[in-house]
């Protein structure tokens, strides 16, 4: 979780999403409340890659039933969800 620690969870995820799904475009922007679903930022495969990435970098186990918009659909939701998981470890 080196990058996650250095940058903070949200910024690290933002970096991962921009590099992987917005092709690292220079002017790529993603706001903390942008819906990945509505904006078409991440597709079905992307969400699985993102899940694996979070599991690896944050050391948490994500159950498939938890991959829902309430937990995953914006950077803010993701940060809250990961923090909840980290605290309950």
């Amino acid at each position: 979780m080196n990058d996650a620690k250095k940058l903070g969870i949200k910024d690290e995820l933002k970096k991962f999403i921009i590099n992987n799904y917005l092709l690292g475009a220079k002017n790529a922007k993603i706001s903390d409340d942008d819906s990945f679903l509505e904006e078409g930022i991440i597709d079905s495969i992307g969400v699985i890659e993102l899940t694996n990435h979070i599991q690896r970098t944050c050391g948490i186990k994500i159950h498939v039933a938890e991959i829902v918009p309430q937990n995953f659909d914006t950077l803010n939701n993701l940060e809250k969800y990961i923090n909840r998981k980290l605290h309950s470890k």
Binding site: D43, V47, I67
Partner: peptide, 27 residues
């Protein structure tokens, strides 16, 4: 349009009482 969350699709098939589903192999 919610395949980003495949569980919602699985739930949706049941909730909307779908009689059919069409997809490509990765689905």
């Amino acid at each position: 349009n919610r395949f980003m969350y495949p569980n919602l699709i699985a739930d949706g098939i049941k909730r909307y009482r779908a009689t059919g589903f069409a997809g490509v192999p990765s689905h």
